[in-house]
Amino acid sequence: MMKPEYRSSLRRGLGEWLLQRLSSLYIGGFALFVGVKLYLQPMQSYEAWTGWATSTGMGIAFAIFWFSIIIHAWIGLRSVIMDYIKPFGLRFIILSVLVLMFSALTLWTMDIFLLRG
């Protein structure tokens, strides 16, 4: 039987739930913004595109966009794995692979935005 007064260091359900929803709002809003912007003001050259995308404001906005995707995908996939993969060992292996994959994606994104941007 469950302990009603259970407290755990894993008390992070609300934070993750909220982060997933906020990130989805940002991803949707930003994708819409970029789509509308490119539709209304098409970029005429690669230079114009990179100039716009790497300006300080847009650089930060794109960085938040990619990090939002990584966070959103991590919480979502972790949730699916928590639902469907019950054996501890298998769950641990799959989550470890995902952690490695998302860490690599995060580093790659940082490399693009901080070092090359």
């Binding site: 755990s8 894993l10 008390r11 992070r12 359900g13 609300l14 993750e16 739930w17």
Partner: peptide
């Protein structure tokens, strides 16, 4: 408030 009780 934990990952399972409500947030599943």
């Amino acid at each position: 408030e934990d990952p399972y009780r409500l947030f599943r």
